[in-house]
Every structure is written in structure tokens, then in C-alpha cells.
């Protein structure tokens, strides 16, 4: 009986409470962030985000574009294959895969960095020191990081989409010997300008989630330097869960079951 109730508490109640308290944290971050406090900090954090994430985003998106193209072309060879791989990459890539990879990179790189930086500040009492000075650490530390994510993630999504399409095109043309014009046409046929702006919008929402989840884990770190490691890891896992669910939901809301553009 007591083990059952313990299980219910651990598996059901605690996660729900965690989600609620993260949502509350996010709401507070939103309210504080709307006052847009220190642009200097936001710019520094944003450029740091771009520097750490962009190389990784480009590598992963290029490879993803290339590998999807090779596999799709090989499998579709019966129906004149080749160029249709461009359609698959153009559609599935731009709408879901490339944005998701970009957000995953930001979550893993910048989310981890934010959580460990704030976690280290928490355990060495730097956040307490701010509190005692009467400075709101939320405004000083959390808000600029959330802003950086909201501004930086859409940019990563755009880079990811572009690199993915380039990867697909180059591999199609240079390695698979698909006709240049036909490959380009099939890639572009399925990508609308609307998909790109949707990507930016989606990136901003995913970025907000990453920023909130990562700063919250860092901000509420307990248990010394071991705790900082735990918080960092949790920040990545949890922000990826949030990003993944939100991404699927947004795709569904935006595109519904209408699959071919």
C-alpha cells in the first residue's frame, strides 16, 4: 500500500509538480523578460549561443540532408528515384527534421551551458549574494538568457534549413549524378516561403522553452558541484523533451494532416 502510494507520488505527482513549477518559472521569466533589461548581456549571450551552436548545427544538418537524400534516392530508384529525394528532403526536412536538429543542438550546447553556469553560481552563493544586494537575479541572470535563446534559436533553424538543403543538393548532384536543374526544382517545389517564416516562429517558441527549462534547472540547483552536473544533465534532457513535444505539436497545428504542400 505505502509502496503503491510512493510510486504514485514519484511517477505521477512529482513530474506533474515539476512541470507546473517550470511553467510558473517560465511565466515569471516572461514577465521579467518583457521589460528587456540589459541589452548588452543579451547580445553577449546571444553571440556566445551562435558561436557554440552554429558549427554543430551546420555539420549535423548538412549530414542529415545528405544521408536522407542518398537513402531516399536509392529506395525510390524504381519510380525514377533521384530527384524525388529532393521532395522528401524539401518537405520533411524543412518542416520537421532540420528545425528539430537545430533546436536539439541549442538545447544540448547552450542549454547545458546556461544550466551549469547558473548552477555554479547557485552553489557558490553568487545568486544569494545578488539577492542580498537587493538585485533581482531573475532580471539579471534569467531574463537575458531566455532572450538569447528566443532570438538565437530561429537563426539556428534558418541556418539548419539552408545547410540541409545545400547538403541534399550537393550530394544529389555531385555524388548521385542527378541533374542539377531537376534536383533544385524538386527541392524547391516543396518549400514555400511560408515554411521558412513558420520555421522562424517555431524556432522562437522552441528557444523560449529551452531558455526557461535550462535556466530553471540551473537556478534551482542544490547539492554542491555534484548537483551542478545533475542540473546540467537534467536541463538537456528536459529541454529536449519540451522541444520535441512542442515541435510535433506545432507541426500538427500548423500543417495538420495536409502532408504534401
Amino acid at each position: 500500500m505505502s509502496t503503491v502510494s510512493l510510486l504514485v507520488k514519484e511517477r505521477l505527482l512529482d513530474p506533474v509538480l515539476e512541470v507546473l513549477s517550470t511553467a510558473l518559472f517560465g511565466f515569471r521569466a516572461l514577465v521579467v523578460a518583457l521589460r528587456f533589461p540589459y541589452p548588452g548581456d543579451v547580445i553577449a549571450l546571444l553571440s556566445r549561443l551562435l558561436i557554440t551552436s552554429i558549427p554543430v548545427v551546420m555539420a549535423v544538418a548538412f549530414a542529415a540532408g545528405a544521408m536522407l537524400t542518398v537513402q531516399a534516392a536509392a529506395s525510390l530508384s524504381l519510380i525514377g528515384g533521384g530527384p524525388f529525394s529532393g521532395t522528401i528532403v524539401g518537405l520533411g526536412g524543412v518542416r520537421e527534421v532540420f528545425p528539430l536538429l537545430a533546436a536539439a543542438a541549442v538545447a544540448a550546447r547552450t542549454g547545458a551551458e546556461f544550466a551549469s553556469a547558473l548552477g555554479a553560481m547557485r552553489v557558490s552563493q553568487q545568486i544569494d549574494a545578488l539577492e542580498v544586494m537587493g538585485i533581482d537575479p531573475f532580471r539579471l541572470l534569467v531574463a537575458p538568457r531566455v532572450w538569447a535563446c528566443v532570438l538565437g534559436t530561429p537563426f539556428c533553424v534558418v541556418v539548419s534549413n539552408t545547410t540541409g538543403i545545400v547538403g541534399s543538393f550537393l550530394v544529389g548532384v555531385l555524388q548521385l549524378g542527378i541533374d542539377r536543374g531537376s534536383m533544385w526544382q524538386h527541392l524547391m517545389m516543396s518549400v514555400h516561403i511560408g515554411d521558412l517564416t513558420t520555421g522562424v516562429f517555431k524556432g522562437a517558441i522552441l528557444g523560449f522553452l529551452i531558455g526557461v527549462v535550462a535556466t530553471r534547472e540551473g537556478f534551482e540547483t542544490t547539492g554542491g558541484s555534484k548537483g551542478v552536473g545533475r542540473a546540467t544533465n537534467r536541463a538537456v534532457v528536459r529541454s529536449m523533451i519540451a522541444v520535441c513535444l512542442a515541435s510535433l505539436m506545432l507541426t500538427y497545428v500548423i500543417y495538420g494532416k495536409q502532408v504534401l504542400g
Binding site: V132, M133, G134
Partner: peptide, 20 residues
């Protein structure tokens, strides 16, 4: 509370200097 604290100063046991 934040306002009240602006009238305090505090030296933490381990310093709590901002590392960055």
C-alpha cells in the same frame, strides 16, 4: 524585500564573488 536588502551589505563565508 529586495528594497530592504539594498540597505544591507554581506560578506559570505566563502566570498561568493562573481567568477565571470
Amino acid at each position: 524585500l529586495l528594497k530592504l536588502r539594498q540597505r544591507f551589505g554581506m560578506l559570505f563565508q566563502d566570498g561568493a564573488l562573481f567568477g565571470s
